[in-house]
Design a protein around this nucleic acid. Structure first.
Lengths: 377, 377
DNA sequence: CTTTTTGCTGAATCCCAGA
DNA sequence: TTCTGGGATTCAGCAAAAA
């Protein structure tokens, strides 16, 4: 039935079930259970992450971080979160067509529980996809790595479901004729795309970027398909689905989000025919850290670096810092320190001595970049 | 108790337990349970993830699980994998020091189960780290995204364990003075680094690159620490630990891997001395009380301090507190109070006026620290 | 008008020594 | 064990304000 859909039919009430391209208010489990079983092609779910935040967090400039402390993200325990997860995944499973697929996005706080429960419920994991953020929030206290990504799980209904939609060729063509990888690079949702109310404050705390949803839908759905989002929020899934000629169904408990999403989707102009192409995320020039040269074996810890006039000498340490007469720091910091300058580009300051000739470490960085480019990274 | 060797360079055998820098043959749970509790600083684990169809799965008692694909037995195999995972994680938890951390690497086949069980066992997740492969294996069937990454979970023993080792400043310095992100880019293990037998076939199917382990150990351990790897395999953890001046303990069931790892580690030349020094930041500096500046005669009671924009003025009292219009307190408290901020670093807020130029009191603290260093304190 | 500076913010499980 | 309080800690992107 869905294969017979034409993009132009999307808005026609004659061929469209009355539950399509609508947002249902209320609990998503109850709402999904009212839909006919095996009726949606793709599910995209952005459930609460169960962040378990304790106290307030301040930036180094003393400003307070606007935490996600909404009621919907509060759970008594892991058990409670698991029960919640199991319930909505079961309801989602019922409405999913036999060859449909489901996407769930999360962070390390919740994604492991979600993934395990999906496996327990017999979903068949196809990939985990890493959304690498170009501009993640820093770690302000310096006690962990900067949490710079989120994880999506992509799964079919069960192991035997082999006929799911995957637009392999389109993705490959869009990715410079290289297979689309499991790590995707996108900015977080900011600027004009971010929905704001009349006071200029964000409408929803966790609005996802449209580019992310676009790649999700372009890879795993066809024009005319039905995309269900049980945690509809600000309606990114609906907006992108409409723009790409897909139908949507959403569930959302808060009226404010429903209103914002409704207005947002109404303003979306669907693309037509040949415009339904895949867009790719900008691939930034790969930044190479000095420690990569050590990791790649181009520089061995203990190596002595010097400047072009051999005035200063510094020793490379295993951790990727330089040391010189009690001073130490990054290639940049130590270069600045030794010269008494406010700053220094270590890449164009430090040299390696090879057979009495000086080689700028920036030359080694170019080698790494070439390798990365050759690998299509 | 087989396959022993000593790494003379690390620590004197007199102070080194007899189980250190050795590979124990057999089941890792039994071997870990023979070690003293709370005795290792870091655990790196690369557990098997041969779940449903990919060959044999071993229960904790080493009996094999038959790989079958009907629903019930699939659930059965997940259960067996969970039991296996719970068993080795519990044993690992016992030997881990209270402020130790654990790393577990896996793919979407197993990492969600592992992560959920870690949370269930009260491990506190610090980060999930994505190892992005520059050269992953292509997806041959074109039915999924190219699986281009693996996931590592980094966790402390529990939520209260805050004193875990994290060499933040060193990582940041090595990364061009930007804090290290949760997505790491490394090639897979190939070429000379890949262990091969006399026939040229790889010794171990999932040998991890040394660069990956190096970043793991450089970020979360100190020289002299003990690193345990319960699934030792080809010994990457041991080789990198030795090279970086850490001690190791390994568990491995297959003699062929033990032999390969033993030879591999014996050939490793440890880095020495300053090459291993870890860059530290202000946190590691000795604490200086403000009153020391008064005691040292650098500031006289009655001196007026001001901020960088001369908005606030406060008088230094003999006891090392500041006073300003009826308010008083430490340099920090008063700075926070005057600005209406939750906190304030008085050292970088208050200035001394010297010949119409402002001098930050942090500069005076540096003088004191230099004196302390010269005195060998 | 153009360029530079300053300010704000984003799914965050974010300190630690000493009393 | 808990509590107190010193004092350490941020990256990219956008927009408004200032120069």
């Amino acid at each position: 039935m869905s294969a017979m859909f034409h993009v132009e039919d999307l808005q026609s009430p004659l061929v469209q079930p009355d539950w399509m391209n609508r947002i249902f208010k209320g609990d998503c489990v109850a709402a999904m259970n009212k839909l006919p079983e095996k009726s949606v092609d793709v599910i995209f779910a952005d459930p609460p992450y169960n962040l378990q935040l304790e106290g307030a967090l301040h930036r180094p400039d003393q400003s307070k971080v606007n935490a996600v402390d909404d009621d919907w993200d509060q759970f008594e325990s892991f058990q409670a979160y698991d029960a919640f997860t199991r319930a909505w995944l079961l309801a989602a499973r019922r409405v999913l067509k036999p060859n449909g697929t489901i996407w769930v996005i999360g962070s390390y706080h919740n994604i492991f529980r979600v993934g395990a429960i999906m496996q327990d419920l017999n979903f068949w994991l196809l990939n985990d996809i890493v959304w690498r953020k170009t501009n993640p929030m820093p770690n302000f206290r310096g006690r962990r790595f900067q949490n710079a990504h989120e994880t999506m799980i992509w799964a079919s209904k069960d192991q035997k479901a082999k006929q799911y939609t995957f637009n392999y060729e389109a993705l490959k063509a869009a990715n410079d004729d290289l297979q689309m990888r499991s790590d995707w690079l996108f900015p977080i949702c900011t600027g004009n795309e971010r929905l704001k109310d009349e006071n200029g404050t964000k409408v929803h705390p966790t609005q996802k970027p449209e580019a992310l949803l676009a790649r999700v839908l372009l890879s795993s759905s066809k024009p005319g398909d039905v995309v269900l989002d049980p945690f509809f929020g600000s309606g990114t899934t609906g907006a992108v689905a409409k723009r790409l000629g897909r139908n949507f169904v959403g569930m959302e408990r808060e009226q404010a989000y429903i209103d914002a999403a409704t207005a947002r989707i109404a303003a979306v102009e669907p693309l037509k025919g040949t415009d339904l192409k895949i867009m790719t995320g900008k691939r930034a020039e790969p930044r190479v850290a000095f420690v990569s040269l050590i990791e790649a074996g181009l520089i061995v810890p203990g190596t002595v670096l010097t400047d072009s006039k051999r005035r200063y000498k510094a020793t490379v340490r295993a951790d990727g810092t330089l040391a010189c007469e009690g001073l130490s720091g990054s290639i940049h910091k130590l270069g600045a320190l030794l010269q008494g300058l406010p700053s220094c580009n270590g890449w164009t300051f430090w040299h390696l001595e090879k057979e009495k000739k000086l080689v700028l470490i920036d030359e080694l960085r170019k080698l790494i970049r070439d390798q990365m480019a050759a690998a299509g990274v």
